[in-house]
Computed example of a mutant assay.
Amino acid sequence: MTAPWVAGVEPERVAVAQSGDVVRIRQLVRALAQECRLSLVDQTKLITATSELARNTLVYGGGGTVQAGLVQNRGRRGVAAVFADDGPGIPDVELAMTDGWTSGSGLGLGLSGTRRLVDEFELATEVGEGTTVTIIKWAR
């Protein structure tokens, strides 16, 4: 899935190199969610998913980048975020996406929980090459 960024509006790119960056990414996504007029419940779901994925990018991917911005598709508007790292990748995606599986140090959501919080979720990973996760939350 390629995020259908709003034409003429470049997504913001934020480096994920330290824990303070996770806070900055949360703030950016919150502002975008408000601009897109997501409901308070949907804002909370998106920000929670963003926190988990940004933290995963930092802790498991060794840092990386996040692109976040407004998206539009077939008359719908939403917020997308693309988390990318050059870390070790995920050796067993099926296990990592299993409900209840945890690395033991996360927020307790895991990737499967994060997937349920958003409308669209795509994970691309290659062992030794890194991981990219794209999420979208559409306005209702």
Rank of each mutant, 00 (worst) to 15 (best):
W101K: 01
P91R: 12
L70S: 08
R24M: 10
R37L: 13
R24L: 15
V59A: 06
R77G: 05
R76Q: 14
D42L: 07
V82H: 05
A81I: 06
Q67C: 06
Q18H: 14
T2L: 10
L32M: 05
A139F: 05
T65S: 15
E129W: 10
T48W: 01
M97I: 06
A96S: 10
L38N: 03
Q72Y: 01
V6D: 08
A7H: 10
E35N: 11
E122S: 09
W101F: 15
V71N: 05
R115I: 03
M97S: 01
S105I: 13
F83V: 02
S112I: 07
A84C: 10
L95Y: 04
V16A: 07
R13Q: 15
E52K: 01
I135S: 04
A15V: 14
Q34I: 15
S103A: 11
G87L: 01
A33N: 08
A84Q: 15
V66Y: 03
I25T: 02
E10L: 11
Q43T: 07
L107C: 03
L111I: 00
V93F: 02
G62S: 04
K137R: 15
V22P: 05
I90P: 00
G62K: 01
P4F: 03
V16E: 09
K137S: 11
G108V: 01
V14D: 07
E10D: 12
L70A: 12
L109P: 03
Y60W: 09
L28H: 07
G89Q: 01
V23D: 13
Q72D: 13
E52V: 03
T65F: 15
E10H: 08
E126D: 13
I90F: 01
G64E: 10
T2K: 12
L28S: 09
G128E: 12
R13E: 15
C36I: 05
Q34D: 14
A7I: 01
A3Q: 06
